Amino acid sequence: MTSSPMTSDSYAERWKMLALISLGFVAMTLNWFDIAPAFDAIGTEFHTDISTTAFLISLFLLGYGIAHVPGGMLATRIGMKRTLVLGLGLEGVADSVSGLCRNYPELAVDRVVAGVGASVFIAVGFGAVSVWFEHHETTVALGLADGAAFSVGAAAGLYLWSYLDAALGWRVALPLAGVLAVSTAVVIAVGFRTPAEKKTLGGAAITLDGLRESLGNRQLWIYGVTLLGAYGA
């Protein structure tokens, strides 16, 4: 009989995996929101008005939106852990080199790439938590990762990074957040694993039957519409 994560892995191991993914959520949202405190400095340097500068947030969301489905397919093909590391690493690298951008178009492209990385990470971020938990613990774990950790990263990007921008300048503060994301990706690469009995999470072939089953899943569409409403709000 196949054992569940609750019986085959220790209690401490599950919460260790949650801690690693939660760190990933903090780093992901930090590199999402850290651009906002730099708007004034970027606008002054690149001679853009506030609406044009603020459009950098929308460009991040453009990359974030278009990569969700490809990110999920990538996870199926190369496995959950590699996808987590690749997504967060890509976002971190994009923010790490943002300080080298010579003009607004270069920074705009950089933000789209960062959004793609964040999307790839979050495409399996929820799953990376839920595969380790069952029943009521799943709700608690997802609340800590998607709720608390997500909010901590956003708050750090909006508030803490305003002080770093003032002290170091945006060309140093943004790459600093990027380095933190890359470092977190390395930590996840070293420490994260999926439950031993869930072998398909290490990578599997993408089939038409699998795609049909996913696209025909009623609960999936309900979840998607709910998220659309939440992000819209």
Results as ranks from 00 to 15, higher is better:
Ser3Tyr: 07
Ser4Arg: 09
Ser10Ile: 00
Tyr11Glu: 14
Met17Cys: 08
Leu18Trp: 04
Leu18Glu: 04
Ala19Pro: 11
Ala19Glu: 05
Leu20Pro: 15
Ile21Lys: 06
Leu23Ser: 10
Ala27Phe: 08
Thr29Gln: 13
Asn31Arg: 02
Asp34Lys: 11
Asp40Glu: 14
Ala41Asn: 10
Ala41Ile: 04
Ile42Pro: 09
Ile42His: 03
Thr44Val: 10
Phe46Tyr: 13
Thr48Ala: 13
Asp49Glu: 11
Thr53Leu: 10
Leu61Ala: 13
Gly63Pro: 11
Tyr64Thr: 05
Tyr64Trp: 10
Gly65Leu: 04
Ala67Tyr: 03
Val69Ser: 03
Val69Met: 12
Pro70Ile: 07
Gly72Pro: 11
Arg77Cys: 14
Lys81Pro: 04
Arg82Asp: 05
Thr83Ile: 10
Leu84Arg: 07
Gly87Cys: 07
Leu88Lys: 13
Leu90Met: 15
Gly92Tyr: 02
Gly92Gln: 05
Asp95Arg: 06
Ser96Asn: 02
Ser96Ala: 15
Ser96Val: 03
Leu100Glu: 07
Arg102Cys: 05
Pro105Gln: 06
Leu107His: 04
Val112Tyr: 05
Val113Ser: 05
Gly115Val: 04
Ser119Asn: 06
Phe121Trp: 05
Ile122Val: 15
Ile122Lys: 00
Val124Ala: 10
Gly127Cys: 03
Ala128Leu: 07
Ala128Pro: 00
Trp132Met: 08
Val140Asn: 01
Ala145Pro: 09
Ala145His: 03
Ala145Cys: 07
Gly147Thr: 06
Ala149Ser: 13
Phe150Glu: 09
Val152Arg: 00
Gly153Asn: 05
Ala155His: 01
Leu158Thr: 13
Tyr159Ala: 14
Tyr159Phe: 15
Trp161Ile: 09
Ser162Leu: 09
Ser162Pro: 02
Ala166His: 14
Ala166Asp: 15
Ala167Val: 03
Ala167Trp: 10
Ser183Ala: 15
Thr184Met: 12
Val186Ser: 02
Val186Asp: 03
Ile188Arg: 02
Val190Arg: 11
Gly191Lys: 11
Phe192Ala: 04
Ala204Tyr: 01
Thr207Asn: 04
Leu208Arg: 14
Gly210Lys: 04
Leu215Ala: 13
Gly216Ile: 03
Val225Trp: 08
Tyr231Trp: 12
